[in-house]
Each structure stands twice: as C-alpha cells, then as structure tokens.
Design a protein around this nucleic acid. Structure first.
Lengths: 151, 151
DNA sequence: TATTGTTATACTCTATAACTATA
DNA sequence: TATAGTTATAGAGTATAACAATA
C-alpha cells in the first residue's frame, strides 16, 4: 500500500480541505517526535526553555517567560527545577541588579544536543525508507511550513 | 526571498540533513497550530475525547482511556466534565452491566464540528495565499507525514 | 478470581495576587 | 512610581492505590 492506494490524502487541492488533513498530519507527527526524548526526566516546558537557552544564549527570566508565553511565577518554578538539576545557572545581571541572567551549563547543553540527536535519528530512519522523490517533496514542504509558521 | 535564496532548505537530499530541518519545521508549525484554539471552553484532553466519540461512535470508558493513553481514573474525571456540560451521555452497556457506553450528544457533535472549523480556518487562510504548486507539495507531504507518524 | 469503573489522595504545571528589592 | 523576580495560594489534569459491582 504505497503508491496505488491513497484516496483521501490527495483530494481536490482546495485550501480548506487540505488544511484539515495537513493540521492532523503535522500535529500527529509532532506528537511522535516529542515522544522521542532523551533520558533526562524533563517536562516539555523544561526542555523547551533549555533548548531556547542553548540556541539563543543567556536570557532573563522575564524574556524567557515572554518567549514561552507563560507567566513569570511559572517560569520561576521551571527555572528552579532546571537549577536544581544543574542544567542552568543563574547569575546577576551586570547592568540591572533587579534582573537575573540564566544560562545553560555544559550538562544542560549536552542534554539538549542528546535529545535533538535522538529525535533526528528517529526521523532520519524513517526518511531513509522513502524514495528520493518523496524526500524531495518533504524538503520543499519544510520550507513552505517554515514560512507558514513564521507568518 | 522566495525562490532564489534558500540555501538551507533544499540541501543535499540526504535523510540525516533533511531530518533536522523537517523536525524543526514540524515542531514549530504544530506549536503555532496549537496556539490557535477555539472559544470552546474545553481542555485539550476533553476535546480529544469528544472528537474521538464524534468520529468513531459510542465507546466504553476503558476503551477511550486506552485510545487516549490515559489511566481509567483520569478518564472518569474527563467524562464527568463532559457529562456535566451536556456534551456526552452515559448509558448501560447492553451485554455487560459492569461497563458503560459513552456517546456524544447533538450539542457535543456541534461543538466538535465548530471547533474543527475554527482551527482549520487559520491554516486555510495561509494555504490560500500559496501557489497551487505549493499546495500540491503540501498535499503530497501530508500523506507522507501521516505514514511516518503512523510507523 | 478477574475485570470495569469509581473514589481517595497526591503530584505537576500553570495561574493570579501580594510582597521585596531595585530603577 | 514602575519594573524584575519571588512567594503564597488555588485550580486543572494526571497518576497510583483501594474499593464496589459484575462477570
């Protein structure tokens, strides 16, 4: 059942019909990817903050809360957990003593890279089973999806 | 910056390189989609159960819990909430009096359809702004993604 | 005895309100 | 006064353990 039997998946290419199919496929794929986590016992929110800091460098609790769309007290709790796990550090802000600067530790960066590696490995195994043509479709779709998400 | 400048998005079509790009695009898109929630005052879990019952017909609490990968006590709580909202009914199982049969009400079915419509609207607007060729790419990608997620 | 479903209880994550320290 | 961050407290969702009813 590879190429000949897919009646629902290539319907009329109308935007409304495609939206429903694409939404389901994207949500389901992301759920599967999220399930591929590293051994670190982190919640989604904790990992999201750790990955943000690893990707973009040190930040203040308020900035992180804004980016994660969470209230400051919730971020305090998340950061406290990451601190106790030794995955981030908290230091004084050089210019403003009200603020704090949070940064990943070496262990934190390792955790992020490990999780990323596992998720990529899971996906890469499945991509390797596709035809070159199918991979080309996904490569084009990747760029289009990125544009949509950033809009 | 549409066709001439995309160095990262169509790299060598190797599975490993594509995996990282696709993972980021899928996770980011799903994050945006999830942020577009409807007015319906239901949690993700409650809506998920309601949509399941609307899609597949009446079921027992245990079956629903299995499908949603949740423990039975958690499902009891979710079903109680949906019952109090008048979105589902609970009746005796015809063959086994230990079990119960849960089904959506007309109000429940309406809620599901309305929510689905609202969630798709955001994505449909963005798809409508694409070229027919780009929509065709996403239609093909949808089918491929679904296969990957189900594997 | 085994299975279905519920109740009792606790833990996690998030929220709002009130507080402290600094600008 | 305004802002950054924390503490206090509450609500929603899920989990395990113990229990009742039925097979």
């Amino acid at each position: 059942m590879n190429a000949a039997t897919k009646p629902r998946t290539v319907p009329r290419a109308g935007a409304a019909a495609l939206a429903a199919e694409l939404r389901i496929a994207v949500m389901r794929a992301s759920r599967r990817l999220r399930a591929e986590k590293s051994d670190a016992d982190l919640s989604d929110g904790q990992y999201s903050v750790l990955a943000l800091l690893e990707r973009e460098g040190p930040s203040t609790p308020r900035e992180i809360a804004l980016h994660e769309r969470v209230q400051p007290p919730s971020m305090t709790r998340t950061l406290t957990a990451l601190l106790e796990l030794g995955l981030v550090t908290r230091t004084e802000h050089p210019d403003d003593r009200r603020q704090a600067l949070v940064a990943v530790t070496e262990a934190g960066a390792t955790t992020v890279r490990e999780t990323r590696r596992r998720r990529d490995a899971w996906l890469a195994r499945r991509l390797a089973a596709l035809t070159p043509d199918e991979r080309a479709v996904l490569a084009r779709a990747t760029e289009i999806l990125r544009r949509i998400a950033d809009s």
